[in-house]
């Protein structure tokens, strides 16, 4: 019995070390963002700055800690390398995309899940078919289209390009959810005199909160991390770049400033990690739902 306990303890220990190694690149990034460039080039694996001593962690010694930590890296990244601009762009871009996607998919999913009408199968089929049609290089016509709309050099164009596609997974999630709501609810609201639109907004949409939350978090992470569309659409507009693209161009321009790079990466990571930790449940549900459904 005792041996079993020991094995179990050992197993937990090994598993913990393994998982910590798993997230080491993240820890490394944060710790590097507080080091000097010289330290990073010579022995970048160490977690703490060279001059660090454990005693610095005592509250009375925080002054010393402040001295050796290079918060300057953050101000270089934030002000000089334009991460402030990238950060705002990413927030705007992400929220705009998420709102458009949720609205679109909720409307579509509601109608497809609850009503019969001519052409329903055609629409359903067309949506699902997009998953399987081999496309050529669609970014080129998309780029043409956005330019033809006169949005080629604006955040609106960037948002449309990202949000405009067909989001099959979310549509299916909404469709499945709405089709499961009992008919009685709807009839009751009709007896109260609510029309099609009011039923949707006052009865149905509030019920769909879990699906909305799932769509929100999945799309939020997707858009925050989006790289290809922003890369192509901001080739001519550095001031519209999002964090992912901004980081890439920063490294192309300044790759000798590794410490500011790490600070920039940390700035990009923290919000998405926080959002993930908050909404973790919905996220996991959404992903699990996509594989079960």
């Amino acid at each position: 019995m005792k041996r079993r306990k020991l094995i179990r303890f050992l197993f937990h220990f090994v598993f913990l070390v393994l998982t910590l190694a798993w997230v080491y690149p993240l820890i490394w990034t944060v710790s590097s963002s507080l080091k000097t460039n010289r330290e990073m080039f010579s022995g970048s694996v160490k977690l703490f700055p060279d001059k660090f001593e454990w005693s610095f962690l005592l509250p009375s010694n925080w002054g010393q800690l402040e001295e050796i930590l290079q918060f300057d890296n953050y101000s270089r990244a934030w002000y000089i390398a334009n991460f402030s601009q990238y950060f705002i762009n990413t927030l705007l871009f992400t929220f705009a995309v998420v709102i458009i996607v949720i609205t679109l998919c909720a409307l579509t999913g509601y109608v497809l899940g609850r009503y019969d009408f001519p052409g329903k199968f055609l629409i359903m089929g067309a949506i699902i078919a997009t998953m399987f049609i081999p496309a050529g290089y669609t970014i080129i016509p998309l780029w043409q289209l956005i330019n033809a709309l006169g949005l080629g050099k604006s955040m609106a164009g960037l948002v449309l390009a990202e949000a405009g596609g067909t989001h099959v997974l979310y549509i299916l999630l909404f469709t499945a959810f709405f089709s499961r709501i009992p008919k009685e609810l709807e009839e009751a609201s009709q007896i109260d005199g609510a029309g099609f639109v009011r039923t949707f907004f006052t009865i149905m949409l509030p019920l769909a909160k879990p699906v909305i939350a799932t769509t929100f978090i999945l799309q939020f992470i997707n858009s925050w991390n989006s790289f290809f569309v922003p890369l192509v659409f901001t080739i001519h507009r550095p001031d519209l770049r999002t964090l992912g693209v901004g980081m890439y161009s920063f490294v192309e321009d300044n790759s000798s400033d590794l410490a500011a790079m790490a600070a920039g990466a940390t700035i990009s990571f923290i919000p998405i990690v926080v959002i993930f930790l908050i909404f973790q449940k919905y996220f996991v549900d959404g992903i699990a739902g996509s594989v079960k459904g």
């Binding site: 002000y79 402030s84 950060f87 927030l91 919000p271 926080v274 930790l277 908050i278």
Partner: peptide, 17 residues
């Protein structure tokens, strides 16, 4: 906490502008 964090970063970004 998350909301405050994001607001804080926004304010920082806004300050510069």
């Amino acid at each position: 906490f998350g909301v405050i964090m994001i607001l804080f970063m926004l304010v920082l970004a806004g300050c510069q502008n």
